[in-house]
């Protein structure tokens, strides 16, 4: 039965995707991509991938809409009409589709227990997690410890993306922003709107608390640094929307944000180097404590904190970079 629900939701997902491509109005595309993210999260959840679904929820629910809208605020309302003929593109897309369909013929059946993904290293991870790290959530163990290199790479991808956006948009509100004719005369956020303001302010501490719960409960339930970082950034972005961007900058200034971006990635790397200094391999946490299992748990906790710090810093920096460009 869940398979039927899954197919139905996938159909809705496909319809949404086609509608996003079809729409010429960019605002409509932003709203529909919000729907796409919601449907995608439910699909991930139906496939029992709670950690991935939580990531999609934390990023897709609030932040991606806010960032896309703030990008939309400094661009035009409608998509530009395509300038050249699309025949060449159509041919390439058709060929690529046929190749992909041909490739799926070689795939294992849906939910086949003999699929290579279930036979290769997955059983080893499932066996070893209880013994080596002793935490219930195998996903966190795989991400943080067994495949720590990959997660380090991901953190640096987030780090590089943040740096890239800051290079494009600038970290400081330059002279352009001050004289920008589009600059809002009243940068006070939603202060005049009593109900959103009261309820929003009331919820900010709960969002922060939930973010910390997701951060430090990642070893036991779905969650971890990426999700927690996005949730905490969402809380501060909500504060910025309600009280104005300048109030949010008073809470966490730009210089601190830059420090957070670099500091989180650095923290992760330093934990890895500690492994080398204590006589083992890079990113081997077993040597951090006299008890290898305790050492692994400690290492996971620290690197997850590093991931969370970097993600919070990057998301908030991107938000402020867009805000400094003009309005919002």
């Amino acid at each position: 039965m869940t398979v039927i629900f899954g197919f139905f939701l996938l159909t809705l997902l496909l319809i949404t995707a086609v509608a996003i491509v079809q729409s010429q109005n960019l605002f409509v595309s932003v709203m529909l991509s919000g729907m796409f993210s919601l449907l995608l999260a439910v699909n991930f959840f139906l496939l029992d991938a709670a950690d991935v679904a939580l990531t999609e929820a934390a990023v897709g629910a609030g932040i991606s809409t806010v960032l896309l809208l703030s990008a939309l605020a400094i661009t035009a309302k409608h998509e530009k009409a395509p300038s050249s003929s699309r025949v060449g593109a159509l041919i390439i897309v058709i060929i690529a589709t046929l190749v992909l369909i041909y490739a799926t013929l070689g795939n294992p059946q849906f939910a086949d227990p003999n699929a290579p993904v279930h036979q290769h290293v997955a059983p080893w991870y499932l066996d070893k997690t209880a013994e080596a790290i002793d935490i219930p959530n195998v996903v966190t163990a795989v991400l943080g410890s067994f495949r720590g290199y990959d997660t380090l790479g991901e953190v640096f991808v987030v780090f590089t993306a943040g740096i890239g956006v800051l290079f494009l948009l600038g970290t400081q509100p330059g002279p352009f922003a001050q004289s920008n004719p589009f600059k809002l005369t009243d940068p006070k956020g939603l202060r005049h709107y009593l109900i959103p303001r009261v309820v929003g302010r009331m919820l900010i501490p709960f969002i922060l608390l939930f973010g910390l719960y997701v951060q430090f409960h990642g070893e036991y339930g779905p969650g971890g640094g990426f999700q927690a970082g996005a949730l905490i950034a969402a809380a501060i972005i909500l504060f910025a929307l309600l009280e104005g961007e300048n109030s949010a900058l008073k809470v966490i200034p730009r210089s601190v944000l830059i420090g957070l971006i670099a500091g989180g990635a650095l923290l992760y790397g330093v934990v890895g180097l500690f492994g080398i200094f204590l006589g083992s391999n890079f990113l081997d946490y077993s040597v951090l404590s006299s008890n290898p299992v305790k050492g692994q748990q400690m290492g996971l906790l620290i690197i997850e904190a590093g991931v969370g710090i970097t993600v919070t810093g990057v998301l908030l920096s991107i938000f402020h970079a867009f805000a400094a460009r003009g309005k919002f």
């Binding site: 919000g34 919601l38 999260a41 959840f45 709670a50 679904a53 939580l54 929820a57 934390a58 629910a61 609030g62 932040i63 809409t65 806010v66 809208l69 703030s70 939603l190 709107y193 959103p196 929003g200 919820l203 709960f206 969002i207 939930f210 997701v214 339930g221 779905p222 969650g223 999700q227 949730l231 969402a234 809380a235 972005i237 909500l238 929307l241 309600l242």
Partner: peptide, 18 residues
């Protein structure tokens, strides 16, 4: 936890629209 995350932050998008 997932539903809780959505319940907490889903309305931020509407504030952004406002």
């Amino acid at each position: 936890d997932l539903a809780l995350a959505y319940a907490l932050i889903n309305f931020i998008g509407v504030f952004a629209v406002l």
